[in-house]
Design a protein around this nucleic acid. Structure first.
Length: 152
DNA sequence: GCCAACGTTGGC
DNA sequence: GCCAACGTTGGC
């Protein structure tokens, strides 16, 4: 079992949005970065823990707890010419973009980016590293437990 | 809106 | 394979 942090723009899909969906599940569509894709395709497994992070917003930070909820499968938006995530070079028989489903477990109080940065125990969290832009990052087990304890 | 940092693209 | 130009991310 592994742990992850997944960024979502709350204007697009907030933790509240996911909690309102059938089964509280959302396909994590739109990722167009190979490293993040490879995590979903090759490493993430159903049941893995997810820190649901709100990014590109007024109050960036961890907003909820979720879990990986499916095996990897093709991101449909890559085949949709109307979608901003359309990829004309991707073939149905060998899809380039792969996703997993994410199930929201609960909303938490906002653990802000400022909170995260000011906690010495989280100093080497990947998401806090300078210049980090990756939308899916692995989270160390000790960081995961520390954050859940902080939120409790 | 700014801009630092990083990923991708494409000419060579 | 190099690397400059360009596009994107995401905090501020």
């Amino acid at each position: 079992m592994r742990y992850w942090l997944m960024k979502s723009e709350p204007d697009e899909c907030s933790i509240d949005d996911v909690l309102l969906r059938p089964g509280r599940v959302v396909p994590w569509f739109g990722v167009r970065n190979y490293q993040a894709r490879n995590f979903m395709r090759d490493v993430m497994k159903p049941g893995d823990g997810v820190l649901f992070y709100h990014s590109s917003c007024a109050q960036p930070g961890i907003a909820g707890i979720a879990e990986v909820a499916s095996a990897p499968y093709a991101d449909e938006t890559q085949f949709d010419p109307q979608s901003p995530y359309f990829d004309a070079a991707s073939r149905r028989e060998s899809p380039r973009w792969i996703l997993i489903d994410v199930r929201a477990l609960r909303k938490t109080r906002l653990l802000s980016l400022e909170d995260l940065r000011s906690d010495p125990a989280l100093l080497d969290m990947l998401v806090l590293k300078r210049g980090n832009r990756l939308s899916i990052t692995p989270v160390d087990t000790n960081h995961w437990h520390h954050i859940l304890k902080t939120l409790a």
